[in-house]
């Protein structure tokens, strides 16, 4: 009896996996793109940033913004990025892709921000962007205190 159950479970798992692989193979990953921010890591002067991209109509997309607590504003830079565990979730936005794709304005925090765009589609990886937001005054202080200069996009 047990053997039959185990065999049935094994068969079910195999079928499920095969269908998942088949489904993933049908997904055209080129249809899922993040247009803005362009670079994987970039410096940004404006507090508000636009996240835009392409995805088939109706795709449920979540945009997560992570930041790091850096009271001095000098601890991290695009060269000296925080560890994965140092990030804290700041905000989450759930949007749906329309005929033009998707777009959402997100308010950054000073310093290093990590933006994760999750398409919630199996076989499509989430996209990660690192944005260093600085104000004009901050860049002077960074230049004075450190030899590390954030690169402009």
């Amino acid at each position: 009896m047990w053997r039959k159950i185990v065999a049935l479970l094994f068969a079910l798992i195999t079928i499920t996996n095969i269908s998942t692989i088949a489904l993933a193979d049908n997904v055209d990953s080129s249809k899922y793109q993040v247009i803005l921010p362009k670079e994987e890591a970039s410096a940004y002067k404006n507090k508000v940033i636009l996240i835009s991209g392409q995805a088939p109509v109706g795709t449920k997309i979540s945009i997560e913004l992570y930041g790091v607590v850096d009271l001095t504003g000098n601890k991290y830079s695009l060269i000296n990025l925080p560890n994965k565990d140092d990030y804290t979730l700041i905000s989450t936005a759930d949007i749906e892709s329309g005929p033009l794709g998707f777009a959402k304005e997100v308010e950054l925090i000073r310093g290093i921000n990590k933006i994760i765009v999750n398409f919630n589609v199996e076989g499509i990886d989430s996209v990660e962007r690192i944005v260093y937001y600085y104000e004009a005054q901050q860049i002077f202080e960074t230049l004075r205190n450190s030899s590390v200069i954030p690169t402009a996009n």
Partner: peptide, 19 residues
């Protein structure tokens, strides 16, 4: 804030639109 369609929608049009 207004963004050029060239950057935000990846199309060769320099019109600025708000989101």
């Amino acid at each position: 804030y207004y963004y050029p369609m060239r950057d935000s929608l990846n199309v060769n049009n320099d019109i600025y639109i708000p989101y």
